[in-house]
């Protein structure tokens, strides 16, 4: 009988300890947070700012513009240097201002829960955790890839524009050196900025006869990570073609005016022309 009471007491104590754990262990980690950070540190940041009335967006674990503005307002009101970056002083002030906060207060019940109730997995199979330094997996507000495509736009281009470019790069230049893949994306961007061509990425890509991969259906192949990286680098400003508007594979074309174009350079199997 005594043994039974002891077991019951032990179980009760353990249960109470476990239920009180989240508010203690789900605290900020040591890393600083900036625009572009992600992970459950950012979930906590958004949750605490929401509790104080500074943040009104979705608790998605992504440090975007709304989180940035909320941090700046909080820093201003609490006499901290207004940087928009979350350093140790900001975290301490935030924790002090929200002593009763815990993950259960947030509508989604904690860090990035997926439909199966588990935490979001990154491409390497790890969770998007605060201890995952830098939150280098999953989503972020700028040029972002989630799984099989860009989920956010960048540099004035929408996510669908970037994904379409990745399809063209993969369809036209898979197997080419990385630089050659960036070059295809750069040609599309050069056309976008040239008055002789249509004003949108879809209009450029789907202009009849503009790209072979559209004609033969290879544009519909699923691009790989390398093609997406090539698009991201081209959007970031890398133009290995130095302003080329056209390119062709000399082994596959006998188009006279294409051959007559002034050549800028050859990368892999493609000649890039003005």
């Amino acid at each position: 009988m005594n043994l039974g009471k002891w077991i019951a007491f032990t179980v009760l104590t353990c249960a109470l300890t476990i239920t009180s754990l989240p508010s203690q262990v789900k605290a900020f980690t040591a890393r600083n947070l900036i625009y572009g950070s992600e992970g459950y540190d950012v979930n906590e940041l958004q949750g605490r700012l929401h509790l104080l009335g500074y943040y009104w967006g979705k608790n998605d674990g992504i440090f975007g513009w709304k989180t940035y503005w909320a941090v700046r307002t909080f820093q201003y009101n609490f006499g901290l240097p207004v940087t928009g970056d979350v350093d140790m002083a900001t975290k301490q002030a935030l924790v002090k201002a929200t002593p009763n906060w815990n993950y259960h207060m947030d509508s989604n019940g904690g860090p990035n829960m997926d439909s199966n109730g588990g935490t979001n997995m990154d491409s390497n199979g790890g969770t998007n955790s605060g201890s995952n330094a830098g939150g280098a997996s999953g989503l972020s507000p700028a040029t972002v890839v989630a799984g099989d495509g860009f989920s956010h736009g960048s540099a004035g281009l929408s996510a669908s524009d970037l994904n379409l470019m990745a399809h063209v790069v993969y369809g036209e230049a898979r197997g080419e050196p990385f630089e050659g893949q960036v070059a295809i994306a750069a040609v599309i961007l050069n056309r976008l900025h040239d008055p002789k061509f249509p004003k949108t990425i879809p209009a450029i890509v789907y202009a009849p006869g503009a790209f072979d991969c559209v004609n033969d259906g290879q544009i519909n192949l699923q691009p790989n990570a390398e093609a997406r990286r090539a698009v991201a680098d081209a959007v970031a400003g890398w133009d290995p073609t130095h302003g080329a508007l056209f390119y062709f594979n000399p082994a596959k074309t006998n188009n006279a005016w294409m051959w007559a174009r002034p050549e800028i350079m050859t990368i892999g199997h493609h000649i890039f022309t003005d």
Partner: peptide, 12 residues
């Protein structure tokens, strides 16, 4: 601006 793709961070 800041963001990351496949373990690569990009800062503008």
């Amino acid at each position: 601006d800041a963001g990351n793709t496949d373990g690569i961070a990009r800062f503008a």
